[in-house]
Design a protein around this nucleic acid. Structure first.
Lengths: 330, 330
DNA sequence: TCTCCCTATGACAACGGTAACATAAAGAGC
DNA sequence: GCTCTTTATGTTACCGTTGTCATAGGGAGA
């Protein structure tokens, strides 16, 4: 294995100079820098990160702590994060946990003591636990929060879920829907609240009444979506469209529609959120919202590696129009 | 941060002795061992893995190289692998890659040069690429292969996919089906071949003819499952059941059935494979096969950490009976 | 009883980087 | 031209562990 010493020798400089060049520290002449870089290239030198870390530098590891609500969500984050990591010479360590675990903080502490990641990526629901986030912060590590907002605004990676919700509503209203049912997401999920906000704002801005009866509570799982939609469809004056706060509940909504003998989208339009793989596979395919999850994972890594870079704006969402929406009957 | 030195001091021994105890090396008196362990416990000592690695020991990192065919598959592997890693003091590094990438081996080489994982977990399709697997092996790292078989049999983690296929067939045959269509999986996927093998063997053992017309090629995606099933249902004497080599194609089969005006399961039974989350959500819910993916991930880690442990037998699959199968009409 | 070997333990170097400090050379200000 | 900074580079200690080798003591075999 070639080491920094070999590179130094070949370039005719000291190892410290090589270190400087490789870490982009100042005070190296352009000419020397070039010489070092070339030597490194020729020897195919790759720094030993265990040594970097031990000497007080970075570990080039980023840990993603998550409690898995949804494989495709996590998977997409991983792909985006890992790709960016690779570009930056980092590596992504995954730590699936149980968010109910009493000793979560102990796990983080152990993480720092053993592999000392340069930062920690937190996704919902972990990123929404203010107390936990603060504790982790106090342990000294850098943090990037996916889809959550509290404390330092620099560290947040999110899409404008409220805006996405409004865009979906605009679509529905544009089709002519006036009675739109809403299935709320898990009460502790921050994004769920934003999605609901968007729903409410859209109605108000359209000059429509906000009927509490048209809003039902769900918990992001199929069953709750099914039950919530049942209650909505049982209304004397039933909605012509259902906006579910995520895809899984939208599938529940679809089942409820079937129970009521309603055709989707002719008799009932249905909207999901998240664009899980399933929303494409189900019939009719769901109109839904896609968050740029890979970009969010990448942005999280970015935030950790270069915390002083410009605070990221919202990342763009995308409305995926498929077959579950149509103008209302009559 | 407390180091090995602190522990040594507290226990009244040299750091080397502490190291010996912690690494379960021989030649330490039970009494001393106990003393060291207690000191470590009291100080909440956690070894610095960068230092371990640098000194020529293990890195306590295991990398999972994968090309993501299916988020829930990968996710389950990660959960199982990461859990076992945690129990063993290891950490799981994820490396999603493009299996078509020309420089895959370069990536592995870089991996070894920078973070030097103690082993590499390979899942399909990577684990099925003999040439690649051999190259990685030559780079010196330990390997665990998920669902693939070649070379050293110690390093394989798999379920008996042929057996699972036969179990599914037994179920179908038990229901009374005699004309069973089969949608093959991707030709390069080893498991797909095993599943097909199971289908063939079952027919033969049941004394039924193996009709080539009842077998259609698919590629694991929805569209190919849809098309394959269409061709099967267009047969003059159509099958009463369709066994698709994975869930996604089974969904395609479901759609094809609908196109033909067939009710599932009354007019047509459908079987999937993999038990993806979708198979539970779709209507009718799919009867399918579940592989113990978490256990497989854990076994992979185990294989890497303790390569001389007993070669794992097949891990048990499970038949998940749901609503997509019924006795044939008439 | 005397080797010889094995067990239990420690001292110390080594791993491959980075940080702190030293130093030489080059500009800046007067 | 002379001091005072600043820039460019090198020297060396150090990070926290494991490997190598040395050594003392105890038991087995002759």
């Amino acid at each position: 294995m070639t080491t920094i010493k070999d590179v130094a020798e070949r370039a005719g400089v000291s190892i410290k100079t090589v270190s400087r060049v490789l870490n982009e520290e100042p005070h190296v002449r352009a000419q020397v820098k070039e010489r070092v870089l070339e030597a490194a290239r020729e020897l195919d030198y790759k720094p030993n990160r265990a040594a970097s870390r031990l000497a007080g530098g970075r570990s080039f590891l980023i840990a993603h702590l998550y409690d898995n609500p949804n494989p495709s969500y996590i998977s997409a984050l991983h792909i985006g994060a890992a790709r960016r990591c690779r570009e930056l010479g980092y590596h992504l360590v995954v730590e699936p946990v149980n968010s109910q675990d009493k000793d979560l903080l102990g796990l983080v502490r152990r993480l720092f003591a053993t592999i000392a990641p340069d930062g920690i990526l937190l996704s919902p629901p972990l990123s929404e636990n203010t107390e936990f986030v603060e504790s982790v912060r106090q342990l000294g590590g850098r943090i990037a929060l996916i889809s959550a907002t509290h404390g330092d605004e620099w560290t947040h990676i999110s899409t404008d879920e409220r805006g996405a919700s409004k865009a979906i509503m605009a679509h529905l209203l544009g089709l002519g829907h006036r009675r739109i049912g809403f299935v709320r997401g898990h009460p502790q999920h921050f994004g769920a609240t934003l999605r609901y906000d968007g729903y409410c704002q859209s109605l108000v801005e359209a000059g429509l009444a906000l009927e509490p009866a048209l809003v039902a509570q769900g918990y992001f799982d199929l069953q709750s979506g099914l039950e919530a939609t049942r209650s909505l469809l049982a209304l004397p004056q039933r909605p012509t469209a259902i906006f579910a706060s995520n895809d899984e509940m939208a599938v529940g909504a679809l089942m409820a529609a079937r129970e009521f003998g309603l055709n989707v989208p002719e008799d009932l339009s249905i909207i999901g959120f998240d664009d899980t793989p399933m929303s494409r596979l189900i019939s009719p395919a769901l109109t839904t919202v896609r968050q740029p999850l890979e970009a969010m994972g990448a942005a999280g890594v970015e935030t950790i590696v270069s915390p002083d870079k410009a605070p990221g704006d919202y990342l763009d969402f995308e409305i995926i129009l498929r077959d579950s929406c149509a103008p209302p009957r009559g």
